[in-house]
């Protein structure tokens, strides 16, 4: 159920130093999030599409990932044009759509999709384990990294634990519905999950102590940027500068 379908690949972007990818993704997302001008946002969307293509991600799967924001965007398109004040564009029954409302909804749509594509192209193209070690190299607090890696490590274990509990309930004839019995069953399932998680955590901690845990997880893979990665790094930098220039010119 939980999977990282894009984490493995052999594209140029997959081979790029994860530190550069994380920094570039954060920087570019920030620039796009703070931009207001339509040309900047369209350029950002194009850059996002370009990077996704460069990362050689399966486009159908990417489209599916984008669908998580479409619900909210649809709501905006339904509400904003009719509630914002401004020049009337057209009438829909008793409601009047305004130019300001339409352009605002449009800008949010471009912005949202652009940032999402940048994230897909640059961050989901590494596994969370790599991300954790990358963030450690970028000097984020050790405890936060340990927390991230532990949570990631036990996510899959506890998901199976939950599936096991749920299957046992199903076999006993549990049919979820809108009633107190269903809610109590789910509450006990969650409670049992927490109890088992805590018991497991105690064992995990003891095992970590046995192995001499001193507050860090080490990795043997080193990150070494080489000359081959230079063009792509420069390209990411140029995209950032161009977006900034576009935003300031308008």
């Amino acid at each position: 159920m939980i999977a990282e379908p894009f984490a493995r690949g052999s594209s140029r972007l997959h081979q790029l130093d994860p530190r550069i990818r994380v920094v570039a993704a954060s920087g570019l997302s920030l620039v796009v999030a703070l931009s207001h001008q339509l040309p900047t946002l369209i350029a950002a969307l194009l850059a996002g599409v370009g990077l996704v293509v460069l990362a050689n991600l399966p486009l159908m799967a990417v489209a599916k990932r984008l669908s998580v924001v479409t619900g909210f965007l649809l709501l905006l398109w339904l509400v904003l044009p009719f509630t914002m004040h401004g020049d009337p564009m057209f009438n829909l029954g008793p409601f009047t759509a305004t130019r300001e409302g339409l352009s605002y909804a449009g800008r949010i749509t471009f912005k949202s999709l652009a940032i999402l594509l940048l994230f897909l192209a640059m961050v989901t193209t590494m596994s969370v384990a790599t991300l954790g070690h990358t963030l450690a190299r970028l000097r984020l607090p050790d405890k936060l990294i340990v927390l991230l890696l532990l949570t990631y490590r036990y996510l899959f274990v506890l998901e199976q634990e939950y599936q096991r509990l749920k299957r046992a309930a199903d076999i006993r004839g549990f049919r979820p519905g809108t009633d107190l019995h269903s809610y109590r069953t789910f509450a006990y399932l969650v409670g049992m999950l927490l109890v088992r998680a805590s018991a497991r955590a105690r064992r995990v901690y003891l095992a970590m102590c046995c192995r001499g845990f001193n507050g860090r997880f080490y990795t043997l893979t080193g990150f070494s940027p080489d000359a081959q990665q230079l063009p792509l790094t420069l390209l990411l930098g140029v995209i950032g500068i161009l977006l900034l220039l576009l935003e300031m010119k308008w």
Binding site: V146, L147, T151, V157, L158, T178, A197, S198, A201, M208
Partner: peptide
Amino acid sequence: YDRIAQVGVLSSAFFVASLIHVN
């Protein structure tokens, strides 16, 4: 540090719990 495993594993438990849908 002696609580970090508790918090980490409980945090994954809450992540999994947040995937549960109720009617």
